[in-house]
Nucleic acid binder design. Structure first.
Lengths: 229, 229
DNA sequence: TTTGCGTCAATTGGATACAATATGCTTGCC
DNA sequence: GGCAAGCATATTGTATCCAATTGACGCAAA
């Protein structure tokens, strides 16, 4: 999953991404280059490269001469991400029903067992594992391009959920993960897609319906979009 | 289309991308940071940022301590890109049949007229225009995330076609572009998706069937994969 | 008290200098 | 004549330095 080329930039990039996904770094938080650099013991150059990549992935927003911030996706953007995610993950399921790799079933089941082990714990680990299930699914298609895009939208969804949803314990119903696996194994594409649709719909719905108090920044940024232009 | 923040990095990024798509920079070509920098009159720092972004978009490959090269997608990778593109563009058409913006018809028609003007010319302009039709289509959905991904895969397809297809004049049949527009306007989603499928299938097929002489590198890398491991 | 202006500190944008690493060539040996 | 080791070169990886821009604070005037 991590594209480690063992360069410092990659390491910093992975760390920052992990910190964002696990909500150690909360949306809207500033990411000054030198602060981050000192923290990790590297120069600003490295941090900047990492931030450029995170921005490309939609996890970070940078403002010219202002610096980088953990992204605060608007509701509209969240909706867009969900729309793309549903489209891509349906394709994943469809493909897997056509061509399911040898060891796929075992790997997926093993992952679900991990998820069950932390069931109920409302922490970073369960958030990460829930996302990784979907990423693993995408990787099993053998289509690396598809896997990369799924990975990106899943990560962005994690960020979105941390903004708009109250609780994460039920972000991904583990039961449904199991059901999806079984449907895929049976080659039952209609059923598999149906469950996936329902699964993602539930996640998106929870995000849309829980109007957790927006941060001042996100409210104002929403109303002030014209001004900034 | 260009995400101009008016920073030098963006400018260099746009230029390089354009050069790659228009085949001024051919697949496999080296992109040394200082050479590119001198050419554009900027420092390596800028070029590096641009290259990082191009790598994320799959147009450039970088090898540690070796440098950056214009990507040479393998047939397998090409297949993957097409698979994702078909999935995404079907979603675009589906969405547009649901919600088609006010000025959409006029903008699309205007674009097709541009394409007709250069019909028959087998040059960079027609390649670019053909791709931009699909990108415009995606932008009309209003989903910026979707539009970005479509843009990426379309650009990669341009690169792929330059590697594997003989001629580009018929990359995108302009007639079919018109047909898609009309089907969308009529809200006939089945028909619109059908045409799009056929349209993309034709492109993918031409790439797969025309075994233009592979570059030495790609041939050897294909046969030598076991060795390198 | 509030509004407007000017200066200053903080932070990023960009360039250059140095270090690390891979490649290609030369040289020497078998 | 072919192969391997070592050196030279070229290129990237990283750090540091200067410049440009922005936001904040304070002061003065209405």
């Amino acid at each position: 999953m991590s594209d480690n080329k063992n360069t410092l930039t990659d390491a910093v990039h992975d760390l920052l991404r992990k910190a964002i996904i696990e909500q150690a770094l909360k949306p809207g938080m500033r990411l000054p280059e030198d602060t981050v650099g000192e923290q990790f013991g590297v120069s600003r150059t490295i941090v900047r490269h990492a931030l450029v990549r995170l921005e490309n992935q939609g996890l970070v927003v940078t403002l010219r001469n202002r610096g980088a911030f953990v992204a605060e996706p608007s509701r509209e953007e969240a909706q867009n991400v969900f729309e793309v995610r549903r489209c891509l993950e349906n394709e994943v399921v469809r493909l897997l029903c056509q061509r399911f790799p040898e060891n796929g079933y075992d790997r997926l089941k093993a992952h679900v067992r991990q998820e069950e082990n932390v069931r109920g714990k409302d922490g970073p680990v369960s958030i990460r594992l829930a996302g990784e299930f979907h990423i693993l699914l995408a990787e099993l298609t053998g289509n690396t391009v598809l896997a990369r895009y799924v990975s990106e939208v899943v990560l962005r969804c994690s960020l979105i959920m941390s903004l708009y949803a109250r609780s994460h314990s039920s972000d991904c119903a583990v039961d449904e993960h199991s059901q999806i696996i079984d449907a895929i194994r049976d080659g039952n594409d209609k059923r598999a897609i149906g469950i996936m649709e329902h699964h993602l719909g539930a996640v998106a719905g929870r995000a849309a319906l829980s109007p957790q108090t927006d941060s001042i920044q996100s409210i104002l940024s929403h109303y002030g979009k014209e001004l900034n232009q």
